[in-house]
Design a protein around this nucleic acid. Sequence first.
DNA 1: ATATTTGCAAATAATTTGCAGTCGA
DNA 2: TCGACTGCAAATTATTTGCAAATAT
Lengths: 132, 132
Amino acid sequence: MESDILQNSGIKPSFHRLKILDFLRSRKNHPTVDEIYSELVKEVPTLSKTTVYNTLKLFQEAGLVRRINVEEQETRFDADTASHGHFKCVQCKKIYDFIVDDAAIVTSDLKGFNIEVKKVYFQGTCPGCLGK
Amino acid sequence: MESDILQNSGIKPSFHRLKILDFLRSRKNHPTVDEIYSELVKEVPTLSKTTVYNTLKLFQEAGLVRRINVEEQETRFDADTASHGHFKCVQCKKIYDFIVDDAAIVTSDLKGFNIEVKKVYFQGTCPGCLGK
DNA sequence: ATATTTGCAAATAATTTGCAGTCGA
DNA sequence: TCGACTGCAAATTATTTGCAAATAT
């Protein structure tokens, strides 16, 4: 359950936090802060954008969500913290997840480095838009 | 020569543009807009930050430089447009380049996709900071 | 002279911060 | 009650834009 996830991360499962976590986990589309806020405020009118920011920061520090920046200046969030890449279609703007073979990326250049986070962002055109 | 590079990209080699390109090519440290401006303004007092923005945008569109966003909200620029990854040390903040075997990353998940840009960002601790 | 480049200052956008009010154990 | 959670509004930061002045060919 969502509240257990928060408990286990040492985060008090308040109503707003549960809503935000729930939203992130149910949506696959890597929403922006604005999208999260705009959608949830319909259901939870007392929600403020500050709380969305606060909460996402909290989640992020706890490792519950990851920030995605396929394109600069546009920050999105992903509740799937397993390692995977993100592809953004330049036409339809949709973001696709794809599996990345982590091990294959590592090169001898980074011998002796302690790698904690790996981000793989691709951009291009998706099959749907290529057909046009 | 720098001015030829610009000519070949269809960009008029103005004084400021040459200075900015030169700066990017000589520095290996992937400067931010602010760093570029602050450094160059010492040498070229008439330079404005708007011009740095304009010029970088121009260069970027011409494919002369690439934007780097290892960490969200911090945009840096790289005059090396060959495919490579960027590692940012969370301790000393330094950015290291490393070779990436592009081919190894592609997965079956992206069959039918036209991949135009590949970005690989790692974060962690560099050997120097690990020793402390 | 004519088009391009440049620079200021204002506008915009995303995010952070300070602080006061509110809520729950 | 007390401390954590929330929300408003103001502050901050990065970037873009409009337009006029400077510059180059």
